[in-house]
Design a binder for these strands. Structure first.
Length: 200
DNA sequence: GAGTAGATCGGCT
DNA sequence: GCCGATCTACTCG
């Protein structure tokens, strides 16, 4: 894949800016020889150093969060509520626990398989809108934790440019009890895109 | 359509 | 033991 986003894209400071730039990029997985993918339309930034909503705050290192401290350009996958997988992109250099949660894609590759994985025939918001649905749609498993985004299982390619006027900003979802960080405007999504989990 | 309870288990206190 | 970066199903209207 020559269209991989380069390591230099991920290994920068400024996870909030990177999150915004991930909108419009193409996320793919290859599982059992089957390729599925779509355009990233909704993301959230998390920063271990300064963000009380982040698993790794305040730069807390545990077996789970250790992945976030590795150099950017790898996957951070974890289980939530005992049943759902979340997919994040690790950013920044070694020692900084920054990551971007991918919350929704607009699917365009391997639609039949995506629909089968989700047990749904309609191609709408409920197919790939929301982090747990997206992970299920692309076959993202806990075993993919710490996988390189420059390998052949899961990767991100360059996409179409996104106009500033099409990017909407809000507080993040599901972190209302996370202290002061709960109000940070670190969620970005494509305004009006039908696959975004919540158009607010 | 809106609102809410329940599922279900690894990580951390 | 408690609780979570969620989703689904089921209720009520």
């Amino acid at each position: 894949m020559d269209n991989y986003l380069p390591k230099s894209f991920y290994q920068r400071a400024g996870v909030v800016q990177i999150a915004r730039e991930l909108l419009g990029k193409q996320l793919f997985t290859l599982v059992d020889g089957q390729r599925t993918g779509g355009t990233i339309v909704e993301v959230e930034a998390y920063c271990g150093a300064s963000d009380s909503a982040c698993h790794a705050f305040p730069n807390k290192k545990t077996a789970r969060t250790e992945v976030m401290y590795q150099p950017g350009g790898i996957a951070y996958v974890y289980l939530i509520y005992g049943r759902y997988n979340m997919f994040n992109v690790v950013t920044n250099t070694a020692g900084s626990a920054d990551a971007v949660l991918i919350r929704a894609i607009e699917p365009h590759t391997g639609l039949e398989l995506i629909k089968r994985r989700r047990g749904q025939n309609m191609v709408d918001q409920r197919l790939t809108g929301g982090p747990a649905r997206l992970a299920q749609a692309l076959g993202i498993e806990l075993a993919m934790n710490a996988f390189s985004l420059h390998g052949d299982s899961i990767w991100i390619e360059q996409g179409m440019p996104v106009a500033t006027k099409d990017v909407a900003v809000s507080g993040r979802i599901g972190v209302e009890n996370a202290g002061s960080g709960a109000l940070l405007p670190w969620r970005f999504f494509l305004s009006g895109n039908p696959f975004v989990s919540r158009l607010k």
